[in-house]
Amino acid sequence: MKIDESKLDSIINEYNGEKGSLISILQDIQAQYQYLPREAMDHVAKRLKIPRVQVFGVATFFKAFSLKPKGKQQIHVCMGTACHVRGSRMVLEELERKLGIKAGDTTADNEYTLETVNCVGACALGPVVVKNEEYRGQMTPIKVESLLGSKKT
């Protein structure tokens, strides 16, 4: 993938190229590309003067990072304890069936990425599904169809 290095440099410069800001830098890059392109990670390693393995180590350690491109729309199913006891697994399974993918995957047409999250802190509304940063509370398997069918945001 062709990477705009000047874009990366401006992110890195914002943190004065500090090694300690590696996670923040990767977060900002991910916000740009929706994932971490390999070339971008290589560039960060070079600029911060740290081994590529350290960048890769951080990128694979934290759940916030993805090494795979994501779909246009992102669906996060909250699997926190409060959502779990209220049946979030059934909601997740219905989403998996409807989209034909497993959690962590992206549909073949690149439209949806389905992921789980350990808690979004909206426990009173559980089970919660976050679609493109919009929270949907009190989800049930039945509501999945309208969640997917609703206007793209």
């Binding site: 699997m79 926190g80 304890t81 409060a82 959502c83 350990n118 808690c119 802190g121 909206a122 426990c123």
Partner: peptide, 11 residues
Amino acid sequence: DEGDPGAYMDR
């Protein structure tokens, strides 16, 4: 870094 699932006091 309130990672505890099912808790949101700090948030």
